[in-house]
Simulated scan of single mutants.
Amino acid sequence: MNPFLWPFRLQTLVGGLACFALLGYALFAQYQLGKDPCPLCLLQRAAFLGMGIAFLVAALHGPRGWGRWIYATLVSLFGIVGALIAWRHIWLQNLPKDQVPACGPGLEYMLETFPLSRTFKMVFTGSGECAEVNWQFLGLSMPAWCLVWYVALTLLAIVAATRKSPAR
């Protein structure tokens, strides 16, 4: 069965479940595989959380017409932000070793010590820990897979919004 032909609620439910499954795997990788997340990883998790919540609320609400576009826009905004963070992360991972920035303090310490604007600047600048590739699947690092998922889930939200079928 073609997922592009599924009803709106099923498409958004699948999108939300995919987001939470990705978050579940991130927690599994952290606590069972010992892959501690860097600050950029944590921001990518927040983007998936935002997407997942927007998808699930859309599935529960089941709007028609322009209401679908509100949810698609919300999911897309989280997806674009997450994709930009993942892109930056991938860029850091592909820097030559001599250009990798020095490791910085952890995100929790930065949030407690610095103003929020400086914390965000430091996080997006990246640090040496963000450049480390300690997990791969089919030749892609975790941020690369996140980028793939951000694009796919954003497209799913747009396809769901363009469907001319009943909300149910």
Rank of each mutant, 00 (worst) to 15 (best):
153 L>I: 02
146 C>L: 05
156 L>S: 12
112 E>D: 11
23 L>V: 03
163 R>P: 03
69 W>R: 01
163 R>G: 13
26 A>W: 00
72 A>F: 09
40 L>Q: 00
118 R>L: 13
67 G>V: 00
103 C>F: 12
82 G>R: 02
53 I>R: 01
158 I>P: 04
98 D>I: 07
8 F>P: 02
134 N>W: 14
116 L>V: 04
78 F>Q: 01
26 A>H: 06
143 P>G: 10
164 K>R: 14
67 G>E: 06
54 A>P: 05
55 F>G: 04
28 F>H: 07
23 L>Q: 03
82 G>K: 01
99 Q>N: 12
63 P>W: 10
22 L>R: 00
51 M>P: 05
92 L>R: 02
86 A>K: 02
104 G>Q: 08
101 P>Q: 10
75 V>R: 09
73 T>S: 13
74 L>G: 12
162 T>C: 15
80 I>P: 13
162 T>L: 15
57 V>M: 13
68 R>L: 02
88 R>V: 02
61 H>F: 10
167 A>L: 08
134 N>K: 15
160 A>H: 10
77 L>S: 05
117 S>L: 15
87 W>T: 08
10 L>T: 08
120 F>E: 03
140 L>D: 04
33 L>A: 15
9 R>I: 12
76 S>M: 09
9 R>N: 10
97 K>E: 14
16 G>F: 09
141 S>A: 07
7 P>T: 03
137 F>S: 08
11 Q>A: 07
155 L>I: 15
164 K>A: 12
122 M>A: 14
166 P>Y: 14
33 L>I: 12
168 R>D: 14
45 R>H: 06
148 V>W: 12
168 R>M: 13
53 I>S: 07
167 A>C: 11
125 T>P: 01
92 L>N: 05
48 F>M: 02
105 P>D: 15
37 P>D: 03
151 V>N: 02
46 A>Q: 14
65 G>R: 04
77 L>M: 07
82 G>P: 07
156 L>K: 08
8 F>Q: 02
73 T>N: 05
16 G>E: 02
6 W>S: 13
2 N>P: 14
31 Y>L: 12
39 P>H: 00
21 A>K: 00
56 L>W: 07
99 Q>T: 10
125 T>I: 07
151 V>I: 13
143 P>K: 11
98 D>G: 05
139 G>W: 09
162 T>P: 00
28 F>V: 06
73 T>H: 05
48 F>C: 01
94 N>K: 15
114 F>I: 00
22 L>A: 12
32 Q>I: 06
51 M>N: 09
53 I>K: 03
43 L>S: 04
81 V>E: 11
22 L>V: 06
120 F>R: 04
167 A>G: 13
32 Q>G: 04
21 A>E: 00
68 R>I: 05
87 W>A: 11
125 T>Y: 15
155 L>Y: 12
55 F>N: 08
139 G>F: 11
136 Q>L: 10
